[in-house]
Amino acid sequence: MSRNKKSGYIIVAIAFVLFNVIVFAIPTEKTSVFWIAYAFTLVAFAAQIAIWKAAFNKADTLKSRFLGLPIIHVGVVYLILQLIVFIVFMSLPTIANWIPVVTCAIILGLSGIFLISTDLGREEVVRVEEKVQRKVSSLKELQADVEMIAEAQSDPEAKRALAGLAEKIRYSDPMSDESLAPIEDEISTRIVALKTQPAADTSSSVKQIEILLSERNKKAKLLK
């Protein structure tokens, strides 16, 4: 169990104990309204455990843990709202039972919607980040290939052309899309072909790759 998760559980446990001590120490009439609101408040406390678990179970990296904080925030807000509503209904023990049921159910439902939406948002951010990282890694591999080809070249003109290509790959847009796959595959194929190409043809081949790279970057920019 991670330290953050353990700390969260301890905080919830302490808050739950304090809540019960205060609630049952105050001399109020324990009507059905009280017990309905109390039951929903217990659900809110229990939900905190599931929320903290959801927030940190998928947190493999520091960034993913940070992205889990909004989920915890929604959970805490839900608990606070439920506690406020409980206090209100505890002071109104004779109102109709349907009022606390409907009110607490609405709070629970809306909180659930916000929690699910927040978690989906986090998953989407992580998915996009992973996609970008894969593409950055792919571009770095292409850059490394070009740099190694340049190092193996003895022709000064070819070496300069390859160095320029490596620099352009380095600063290429890391974002990608399925529609860019054909042109990216062609760039990769042409770079591989440079390894066995005569030095005299390298400069012209590099120019063709640069044209493809420029086209790819422009299309990537339009897709944003």
Results as ranks from 00 to 15, higher is better:
residue 71 I to G: 00
residue 36 I to N: 04
residue 26 I to Y: 05
residue 32 S to T: 14
residue 54 A to V: 10
residue 70 P to E: 08
residue 40 F to A: 09
residue 44 A to V: 11
residue 41 T to S: 13
residue 31 T to P: 11
residue 24 F to P: 01
residue 45 F to Y: 12
residue 31 T to V: 07
residue 42 L to Q: 05
residue 50 A to V: 11
residue 63 K to R: 08
residue 73 H to C: 08
residue 50 A to T: 14
residue 26 I to K: 12
residue 61 T to C: 04
residue 73 H to R: 02
residue 43 V to D: 10
residue 68 G to D: 05
residue 32 S to P: 05
residue 53 K to S: 15
residue 59 A to Y: 02
residue 48 Q to H: 08
residue 33 V to K: 07
residue 58 K to T: 12
residue 24 F to K: 08
residue 27 P to C: 09
residue 43 V to E: 03
residue 37 A to K: 09
residue 70 P to T: 04
residue 62 L to F: 07
residue 65 R to Q: 11
residue 48 Q to I: 04
residue 49 I to R: 00
residue 66 F to N: 03
residue 30 K to A: 08
residue 33 V to R: 06
residue 40 F to P: 08
residue 68 G to E: 12
residue 41 T to A: 14
residue 60 D to A: 05
residue 45 F to H: 06
residue 46 A to G: 12
residue 69 L to N: 00
residue 58 K to L: 08
residue 29 E to T: 11
residue 51 I to A: 10
residue 54 A to E: 11
residue 66 F to E: 11
residue 65 R to W: 02
residue 39 A to M: 14
residue 51 I to Q: 01
residue 23 V to E: 14
residue 54 A to F: 08
residue 25 A to W: 10
residue 33 V to G: 02
residue 35 W to S: 13
residue 50 A to E: 04
residue 28 T to K: 09
residue 30 K to Q: 13
residue 30 K to R: 15
residue 36 I to Q: 12
